[in-house]
Design a protein around this nucleic acid. Structure first.
Lengths: 343, 343
DNA sequence: ATGAAAGCGCTAACAT
DNA sequence: ATGTTAGCGCTTTCAT
């Protein structure tokens, strides 16, 4: 094996200048036909492959995009990755995994990578801007925010309408006859949790339902916290007949809490999740939930980012992708009034 | 905002040569003390950050690693990513997501990226080598195979002992009193599926149990296929009292099949999964399963790869990481039979 | 301990 | 349509 061929070698062998070779190979359409195919043939013979670092240095691009999340171990991001990856790959871009673990140093690191030209753009899903780092001056054309909103920044956001989603969910429960509906919220004051809670309050009010404060319990998105929150709810003197949760995992926890005390889901207690994660469908009983179109979020975010990078669309207006409720097996009309749960 | 400072600017301001600046900043220890801190101070003032493309071009490195999977949407990889990322990040490397979708073209693409110097190394989890591409001559120092084995290649493998894992699982079921144990396999002839099936057969034989061929059903790792396979098993004239599955999702499907026909898990039927995926624990009932130490697999694979890249350890001997069985709520002694006395 | 000079491989301005 | 020239910003001999 010799060393790799470079443009110069091809030029020499083809009897043209390196420039012509470069032009021929990158398909600028500025090279006449006989030369073109001649060059291509030689490149083929020599197994030519461009040196990417050299190109990157010259063009000031890297053809890679940072995808920044809090926890790379969270399955929720998977479809977003997948959607973003498919768009990026088609455009010749690669995805760089960026995992902040909520560590401010890491958050800053990844922004520095952007400034350093180690990546051309970023899809930011941590819900926060970093401290202590140089933001690129053209940040609005390099960063798209997805999933979690960040207030007061002029960046494109790709998000769902958390409030509307809650209204749809509650409306469905109400249409089944539920009046005593409780909510298990995510950690406050995180933006997403706050908005979903607001949506719930809003929906309950719009439907004219009573909402005792004890009907709002807080979890941290883990199934364990959902189980504990549901325990508190079911211990209430006047427990709810339906529980709406801020994510699917807490819904799974709530199902566990119900089963533990001999309650059937959905006969004795309805459960409504949020996210339509992987396995919501496989769960027994299959979870009724709000579907977030994660593939779509990933695609839209990447599409907009690429438009920014190519200068095709500098707008930073937000993109709201629609959610839909998916009715499965964990919701049903409330039980008839009895003192004891029926078997 | 001015344009970014470069080494030359610092050199000018510090009254030294670019060479000295480079040496000072990369900590080679070849610069005397007064100069050193002087240079550092100026770099700080100018917010100097090195141009990575230039460095890459010069050093022929990129400090990034390809992580190649069949389907980036599969949650199973998450902890492997996480483990690999933590090691890589500490060493200053970034991870490039590579998603093959089982497309030979993509598989080749990612190897080409390696050859092209777009990435320094690769962790390969697709279980196959690509066709139609130039493999780097020093491939054994650039590629580590994880999770799925590839036969006849001289590359480091980081894998679990699928056979031993099956033996442990079956032994547990046997110790509970089960004799009629069926298996839902993954797609044959994929390496992983073949090995787990072999392990199951081996274990059944070792325990002296009868194994009718109908007790081995095949799925494709989806929960739906698990449900269908379990249906076939439970329709048998002499159905099993325990089902062992090649992954957790198919186990969830089997639980669904059982519930559908009014069978309780684990009272009427025991289910034993494989992987200990996310949610195995949250499932109701919580799934008894074989835990694959994915974080560890990711860490070990990356550690070895970095050792290869730095030349510290050129060995390609395989690394076998231990599994363990996790007993939760889906396994119990088989139901009593009036005419079959048991423990 | 520091500097001068060369060059990694590519592409883009500016000719012709 | 093709060539000439220059240079992206860094690191690394090789000299002093």
């Amino acid at each position: 094996m010799n060393k790799r061929a470079k443009i110069k070698d091809i030029a020499l062998k083809a009897g043209v200048s390196p420039t012509t070779v470069s032009r021929a190979l990158s398909g600028t359409g500025l090279v006449a036909e006989p030369t073109l195919s001649h060059i291509r043939a030689i490149a083929e013979t020599l197994h030519y492959r461009p040196n990417i670092s050299a190109r990157n240095l010259r063009t000031q691009k890297t053809m890679s995009i940072l995808v920044v999340v809090r926890d790379i171990g969270n399955p929720f991001y998977l479809d977003i990755f997948k959607g973003a990856e498919s768009i990026a790959h088609d455009a010749g871009y690669s995805l760089l995994m960026a995992n902040t673990e909520d560590d401010p140093k890491r958050e800053a690191d990844y922004f520095n990578m952007l400034s350093d030209g180690r990546a051309d753009g970023m899809i930011l899903m941590t819900g926060k801007m970093p401290l202590d780092c140089d933001l690129p001056h053209d940040i609005s054309q390099k960063v798209v925010v997805a999933l979690e909103m960040i207030d007061n920044v002029d960046l494109t956001h790709v998000v769902i309408d958390n409030e509307y989603a809650s209204i749809e969910a509650i409306d469905h429960l109400v249409s089944l006859g539920h009046q005593k509906i409780a909510y298990i919220a995510g950690p406050i004051p995180e933006g997403m949790s706050v908005r979903r809670l607001a949506g719930f309050r809003h929906a309950m009010m719009a439907d004219g339902l009573k909402l005792p404060e004890a009907y709002i319990q807080q979890g941290n998105f883990s199934y364990q916290s959902g189980e504990r929150a549901a325990d508190r709810l079911l211990d209430l003197p006047d427990p709810p007949t339906a529980i709406y949760t801020a994510n699917d995992e807490m819904a799974f926890g709530a199902i566990r809490a119900a089963k533990k005390r001999g309650l059937s889901v959905p006969e004795d207690l309805s459960i409504f999740g949020f996210d339509d994660t992987y396995l919501a469908e496989a769960f027994v009983p299959a979870l009724t939930t709000v579907r977030q179109p994660c593939l779509e979020i990933g695609r839209r975010a990447m599409t907009r980012l690429l438009a920014h990078l190519s200068g095709d669309n500098p707008d930073t207006d937000s993109i709201v992708v629609p959610t839909e409720i998916v009715i499965r097996e964990t919701t049903a009309p409330p039980p008839q009034k009895t003192y004891h749960p029926s078997s």
